[in-house]
Amino acid sequence: MRSILPVMTVVAAILGFWVMCVVPMNMHLVADQAQRDGLSVAPDTPNARQDFGGVALALKNPHLIPLTYDFVRPRLPSPHQVAGEMYATIFEKKISSKRSLVYHGWVTLAPTLLGFVIGTGLGILLAVGIVYSRVMDRSVMPWAIVSQTIPILALAPMIIVVLGSMGIQGVFPKSIIAAYLSFFPVVVGMVKGLRSPDAMQLDLLRTYNASGSQGFWALRLPASAPYLFASLKIGISASLVGTIVAELPTGARAGFGARMLVGDQYGQPLVSWAALFAAALTAAALVGIFSLIERITLKRMGMATT
């Protein structure tokens, strides 16, 4: 727990940087609005103001600086605006409402979890196949590694539309992408994990006259647990990113990705930012849950490193 203070410092520094950026980013818009409201603004035409940078304009009109933090349609909203919007859409709306972030969060989370379970299951199976079959190891493993260098995530929206045109809609298409993205990290991690027992341990089992399946359940599978958890944490965040990207440009009506795009297109930046931070919190929560399970499991297995 000794790292709490440093973490708070870094977070405070990031927030401070953000707060500082709000003024120059919004200054021009605020100045235009202030003029319309009859306040005095230093260069009094929008064109003249374009010649100044955000900072210079703020120095010329210090009385407008507080306004930048409460602007209705900011280019960069201030932290308290985002927090307010998040509070309003998470706690003050009914969960069934179309404007509730909890509702949109569930729309995104359900396919993520379904896809993650499918991808992880298939990944573990393939990893077992690769470890026990020389042919699969030699023919599939190189492709599993190469596939991680391919920006497949960029195609997520297209896959959604193809499946949609085939009449497959709802949770399933998004979970395919989530499954795909969690699949390969799990394969690569599990292959490493299942191979982690060294020759000495395998020999020991042979002196016990253990069968192949006993060797798998009693040695290889438990030994792979730390590797599996590392992959699961990568996989779950990749799945969530995949689902969100899949929702972004496909005209999806619900979900974090859809909220980000709606806010962007209809000039409601607060909606986008709230969705962005809600997605970040969700990702953090998912990774956090897996870290917790990891710590408890490894501790009970006697494999905890610290």
Binding site: V7, V10, S237, L240, I244, V245, P269, L276, A279, A283
Partner: peptide, 16 residues
Amino acid sequence: VGGFMAALPIVGTAPI
């Protein structure tokens, strides 16, 4: 903090 940020869906900032 960096490890946490690396796991976030940063690609969502693209429209912004």
